[in-house]
């Protein structure tokens, strides 16, 4: 990087000197020399970046003035037309410089985003492939009727931990994807009942579900919304007593759709409700993903014991409801 920049300096100074000497020797007219200087500045900027380009523009402007605008051999300029030519030269070279720098920056950013995206894809594929094989083989083991009690417990343990691992990976990938910026949330009208349906396909835990009749569709990225709910329900399920399944509801709330995950677990000490971060990765992710969907997330004690995790998401009413 250093040698590349040093080369650019060398190139720029040599180029300006060559144009000056050549221009004088061949008695070229000032316009031709101006364009030649511009080419040198442009190349210097492409090779060396904004600083090299800017300094090159200034040196070229000075040489241009000193050697090619009468009175020659001074920095004075008598003809107002030459003032104009020189200013136009300086402005053009500075603008060219900035454009080149911006293009460089954009190219570097695109390159790093593309790299992140392909890394994510590779990680996702490399983690998912063995996990898929493990899932299939674990199910094959579970099906074998000959498994005795101890072995069966072990296989069930593998099964459960595999699911957990899968969800952690899903979480991390969802977060990484958002942060990489290459996957902006793709929102579309999504009926909450369909989100709940997808949750049940992903997370086989007992759930009681209720969607109000007048609940509008939510305008969300369905995959991210699913991620939020799976996290919240997984958390809620873990603390729920066996006789009180997690309750999942959706209702109209002003201009939002309010989705709540209610459990009868031990609840959260009041000091912790303010700081969701202390409740683990799942809740942090829920909060970030809710924000990415234009929504909010908070958590409050449930009357009668337990916790309510609440996500408010923007509504997408049907056209006839908006009138």
């Amino acid at each position: 990087m250093h040698s590349r920049r040093a080369l650019a300096w060398l190139f720029s100074l040599a180029g300006i000197a060559a144009v000056t000497i050549g221009g004088r020797a061949m008695r070229l007219n000032a316009n031709t020399v101006g364009f030649a200087f511009l080419v040198v500045v442009l190349l210097a900027s492409v090779r060396g970046g904004l600083l090299v380009g800017t300094v090159s523009s200034i040196i070229a402007t000075l040489c241009y003035n000193y050697f090619f605008f009468p009175p020659l051999g001074t920095f004075a300029i008598h003809d107002p037309a030459n003032w104009f030519a020189l200013s136009a030269f300086l402005i053009t070279s500075v603008i060219v410089n900035r454009l080149v720098a911006a293009a460089h920056h954009e190219a570097a950013r695109a390159e790093s985003e593309a790299l992140k995206a392909s890394l994510l894809r590779a990680v996702s594929h490399d983690l998912t492939t063995p996990l898929t094989a493990i899932t299939i083989q674990t199910e094959a083991l579970k099906r074998k009727a000959t498994l005795d009690g101890e072995l069966r417990d072990a296989v069930n343990g593998i099964d459960e931990e595999t699911r957990r691992l899968r969800r952690r990976i899903d979480n991390l990938l969802a977060m990484a994807r958002l942060q990489a910026g290459n996957a902006k949330p793709r929102r579309e009208p999504t009926p909450p009942a369909d989100l709940f349906h997808a949750v049940r396909e992903h997370l086989p835990v007992p759930l009681t579900v209720h969607v109000d009749d007048d609940c509008p569709d939510a305008n969300v990225d369905p995959a991210l919304a699913l991620e939020i709910l799976v996290n919240l329900i997984e958390n809620a399920h873990r603390v729920s007593p066996p006789d009180a399944p997690v309750l999942l509801t959706a209702a109209r709330h002003g201009k939002d759709v309010r989705i709540e995950v209610l459990d009868r677990g031990p609840g959260i000490p009041p000091a912790l409700t303010a700081d969701v971060a202390q409740r683990g990765l799942g809740l942090q992710i829920a909060r970030s993903l809710a924000a990415a969907n234009g929504g909010t997330f908070d958590i409050t004690p449930r009357p009668g014991g337990g916790t309510i995790a609440r996500v408010d998401l923007p509504a997408a009413p049907l056209p006839e409801e908006t009138r």
Binding site: P191, A193, D194, H197, A198, V209, V211, P222
Partner: peptide, 13 residues
């Protein structure tokens, strides 16, 4: 049961 779709669901995107 509209809260529990059995027949039709949206397919994201």
């Amino acid at each position: 049961d509209p809260s529990n779709p059995r027949y039709i669901v949206t397919e994201p995107w």
